[in-house]
Structures are given as structure tokens and as C-alpha cells.
């Protein structure tokens, strides 16, 4: 807890993020640029994965990774806020939601674009990964809608934390049921196994691109958190001035 409390201090966060965010923007942007350059011009195309369209992988896979990681991070931040009431944890959860939803949508869009030439369809109901990511997207939307509907910041934080934890509790079950649903129609799916078998020529740009997206994500979260901290301070300041007048 000692370490967590140290990070929970908004002053320390503002000081840390004032140089960490620009660093993440720079390094993350450079890595993404390198990954995209490698992906588009350097690596050979893989006809087994649909030819040139497989180059979308260098955006798609990092987006999928961030979709899952961001929901986990949001649920973890919600849990920390719910138990210890560190304001910064709520600020983090609030900042992660729209960004997580954006990367999740990016994952769905790029997956769909990749699916059209390879599977012959924009949307494959029999693909467990597409379905799981779609429901993750809905979890993000529900979280943001609930927060927006609450009439005070404190209530938004509490309701959001409860929902994020309920969602996280259900994610394994949703994943399991979707896997089961799609395994019924195995013949219809033309999914090719990738992953560990992937050649090093693809793996490096992919990993660097994944790291770049993660850093960019982290930088954006920090920027949104900084904005939120200053917004809350301004609101407090205004309340103080009004009370004094």
C-alpha cells in the first residue's frame, strides 16, 4: 500500500506526468511510425493471411491488446477507488474509458477491414474474438453512459466503479460463452492460427508497434487525468471564491 499511496498523491502525479507524458508521446509516436513503416514497406506480404491486407495487423493487434488491457486497467482503478477512495484512481478510470472505447472500436474496424478480403465478410458472427471485443465495446459504452447520467462527481465515481467491477466479474463468463457459441459453427470460420508461429520479421515490428500504442495510450490517459485534476481544482477554487464573496 505504501507505493500505491505515494502514487495517489495528485501533486506527485502532476509532477511525474509533466515530463513522463511528453516522453511517452515522443517515444510512442516514434515506435508507431517505425512499426507502420516496417509494416507497410519493409516486411514481405503473407499470402496465407490474405496478402497485402495483413499489413493492417500492425494496427489491429496492438488495438486488440489495448482493448483488453484498458478494460482491465479501468476495472483495477475502479476497485482501488472503491476500497481506498483514492481520488486519483477514479480520475484514472474516468480517463481510461473513452480511450479504451476508442481503441476497442479501432480493433473492431481494422478487424472488419482485414476480414472482408480474407473471410469474404465484414462481420463474422462465428469469430469468438470479434464477438468478445464487441461486448467489451458495449461494456465501455455502458460505463461512460452511466457516469454521464449521474448528477454528481462522487455518484458518478461510485456507480462507475460498481459497474466496472460487475463487468470485470462477467468478462470471463462472457468470453467462455462466446467461445462455446462460436465453436458450434467451426466449419464456417476460416481462421488461420497465428501467434507463436509468427516469423521474427513480423514479430519485431508488431511488438514495437504494440509498445508504441501502449505508450501513446498511457500518455493520453495522463493528459486526460491532468485535465481532470485541473478541472476539479478550478471547480473547488470557484466554490471557495463564491463562499467567500
Amino acid at each position: 500500500m505504501g507505493m500505491l499511496s505515494a502514487f495517489a498523491n495528485p501533486h506527485r502525479f502532476l509532477a511525474l506526468s509533466s515530463w513522463l507524458a511528453p516522453l511517452f508521446y515522443t517515444v510512442g509516436g516514434a515506435l508507431i511510425a517505425w512499426g507502420v513503416w516496417q509494416g507497410l514497406w519493409v516486411v514481405p506480404k503473407d499470402d496465407y493471411q490474405g496478402g497485402d491486407i495483413m499489413r493492417v495487423m500492425f494496427i489491429h493487434v496492438p488495438a486488440a491488446w489495448l482493448a483488453m488491457a484498458s478494460y482491465s486497467a479501468m476495472a483495477a482503478a475502479s476497485f482501488i477507488w472503491f476500497i481506498w477512495r483514492h481520488e486519483l484512481a477514479d480520475i484514472a478510470a474516468k480517463a481510461i474509458a473513452p480511450l479504451g472505447a476508442t481503441w476497442t472500436a479501432l480493433c473492431l474496424a481494422t478487424g472488419s477491414i482485414w476480414g472482408k478480403p480474407t473471410w469474404g465478410t465484414w462481420w463474422q458472427w462465428d469469430d469468438a474474438r470479434m464477438m468478445s471485443v464487441l461486448f467489451l465495446f458495449f461494456l465501455f459504452l455502458g460505463y461512460m453512459a452511466l457516469r454521464a447520467a449521474m448528477d454528481s462527481r462522487q455518484k458518478a465515481a461510485r456507480a462507475g466503479a460498481i459497474l466496472a467491477m460487475v463487468g470485470a466479474l462477467n468478462v470471463p463468463l462472457i468470453k467462455f460463452s462466446v467461445d462455446m457459441f462460436t465453436s458450434l459453427h467451426q466449419d464456417a470460420s476460416v481462421i488461420t492460427a497465428d501467434g507463436p508461429k509468427m516469423a521474427a520479421v513480423y514479430l519485431w515490428p508488431l511488438m514495437m508497434s504494440g509498445l508504441g500504442h501502449s505508450l501513446l495510450f498511457g500518455a493520453l490517459v495522463m493528459t486526460l487525468m491532468r485535465a481532470e485534476i485541473w478541472t476539479r481544482r478550478a471547480a473547488r477554487q470557484r466554490a471557495r471564491l463564491l463562499a467567500g464573496a
Binding site: F135, L136, F138, L139, L141, G142, A145, L146, A149, L163, V166, G167, N170, L173, I174, F176, S177, V178, M180, F181, L184
Partner: peptide, 20 residues
């Protein structure tokens, strides 16, 4: 409408196991 948006992802396992 908010209830619907919140509950929809939570309904998934039941809908899948149920129709199976």
C-alpha cells in the same frame, strides 16, 4: 435506455447458453 445499455453485455452468457 441506460439499463438496457448496461445490462446488454451481462445478458450475453444467458442468451447464448439459453438458445443452445
Amino acid at each position: 435506455l441506460l439499463i438496457a445499455l448496461i445490462a446488454l453485455p451481462l445478458y450475453v452468457p444467458t442468451a447464448i447458453f439459453g438458445s443452445m
